[in-house]
C-alpha cells in the first residue's frame, strides 16, 4: 500500500539550499557548487523515494545549480582579460537571491518573536454598543473589509452545512400518521360502545400540538368517508364527534374479510 508523507521542514527550494550550505559550513559568498549540487539533487531523490510530492520549483533550482556548475567548469580564457571584460562569477545571481532570502527569513524570525511578545498584552474586544447608541441592531458600523470577512464566514458556514446535509440525514422519532390515528378512533368508538364524544377525548396527548392536529385531520378525513359526524355549536367551542352507522358496518366488513 502506498502512502504519502508531507514534510513541511523546507518552505521552498531556497530554504533547502540555505540549509544545505549552512550544514556544510560553507560561506554563502563562496559556495562549493559541485558539492552542494550533488547534495541538493541527492536530497530531492530521497524525498522522491519517500513519495513526497515536490513542487516544480525544486526542480527549477536543481537545473539552475547544474547550469552554474557547468559554467564553472569552463576554463576562463585570457582573451577576456585582454579585452578588459570583467569576469563574472556564475554564482553571483544565486548568491544575491540566497542573501535576499536569508534576509527575509531573519525578518520572519523577528516578526514571530514580536508577535509572541505583543500577544502577552490582552485587549478587550469591543462589546455590543447598541445599549449606548440606541441604534437598531441592523445598523452596521463595519468597514468594507470587516463586512467582507463576515460575508465570507457566512458563505463558509453555509458550505459546511450543505456538506453536512449531503452526508448526513436528520433522523427523527417516527410520528404518528393519520391512518394510524383513524384506526385508533374507530377502535375507541367500538370498544367504548359510545356513539358520541368530545373531540378532546380523542386526543391522547392534549399538550402536543402535533397530536391535536393529526387527530383533527383524521376526524376530517373520517367525516369525508362519512364514518364520523362532527358539530361545533359556536366559534372555538367544543366539538362533538358522533360515529355513524357506517363506522360500525365498515368494521364488520373488515372482519368478514
Amino acid at each position: 500500500m502506498s502512502y504519502r508523507v508531507k514534510l513541511n521542514i523546507f518552505e521552498g527550494p531556497f530554504d533547502l539550499l540555505v540549509y544545505l550550505i549552512e550544514h556544510a559550513r560553507m560561506s554563502i559568498y563562496d559556495i562549493r557548487i559541485s558539492e552542494i549540487t550533488t547534495q541538493y539533487i541527492d536530497y530531492i531523490r530521497q524525498m522522491e523515494e519517500a513519495d513526497i510530492v515536490l513542487s516544480s520549483e525544486f526542480m527549477v533550482l536543481a537545473a539552475e545549480l547544474l547550469e552554474i556548475k557547468s559554467k564553472m567548469l569552463l576554463p576562463r580564457t585570457s582573451i577576456d582579460d585582454i579585452e578588459g571584460e570583467i569576469y563574472e562569477d556564475p554564482r553571483t545571481e544565486l548568491v544575491a537571491k540566497l542573501q535576499e532570502y536569508k534576509k527575509f527569513k531573519a525578518i520572519s524570525a523577528m516578526l514571530e518573536e514580536r508577535r509572541d511578545d505583543t500577544a502577552m498584552a490582552l485587549e478587550k474586544p469591543q462589546e455590543d454598543l447598541a445599549e449606548y447608541t440606541g441604534e437598531p441592531d441592523e445598523y452596521l458600523s463595519l468597514d468594507i473589509e470587516q463586512f467582507k470577512t463576515a460575508f465570507e464566514l457566512f458563505i463558509q458556514r453555509k458550505k459546511r452545512l450543505e456538506e453536512l446535509r449531503a452526508h448526513h440525514i436528520r433522523t427523527e422519532k417516527e410520528r404518528i400518521t393519520t391512518e394510524v390515528r383513524m384506526a385508533g378512533i374507530r377502535q375507541f368508538f367500538k370498544s367504548e360502545g359510545l356513539r358520541e364524544t368530545d373531540f378532546r377525548s380523542l386526543v391522547p396527548n392534549k399538550k402536543d400540538k402535533y397530536d391535536i392536529s393529526v387527530t383533527f385531520t383524521s376526524v376530517l378525513e373520517m367525516m369525508r368517508q362519512r364514518t364520523l359526524d362532527a358539530k361545533q355549536k359556536k366559534l372555538f367551542g367544543e366539538i362533538k364527534v358522533k360515529a355513524t352507522d357506517r363506522l360500525f358496518e365498515e368494521g364488520e366488513t373488515i372482519k368478514e374479510n
Partner: peptide, 20 residues
C-alpha cells in the same frame, strides 16, 4: 484567554516580505 494561533513558517516569511 484565547491565544492567537501561531503562524506557519511560510506565512511568516511571506508576511515579512509583504511588510518590508
Amino acid at each position: 484567554p484565547v491565544r492567537k494561533r501561531r503562524l506557519s513558517q511560510s506565512a511568516l516569511e511571506t508576511l515579512a516580505i509583504v511588510a518590508y
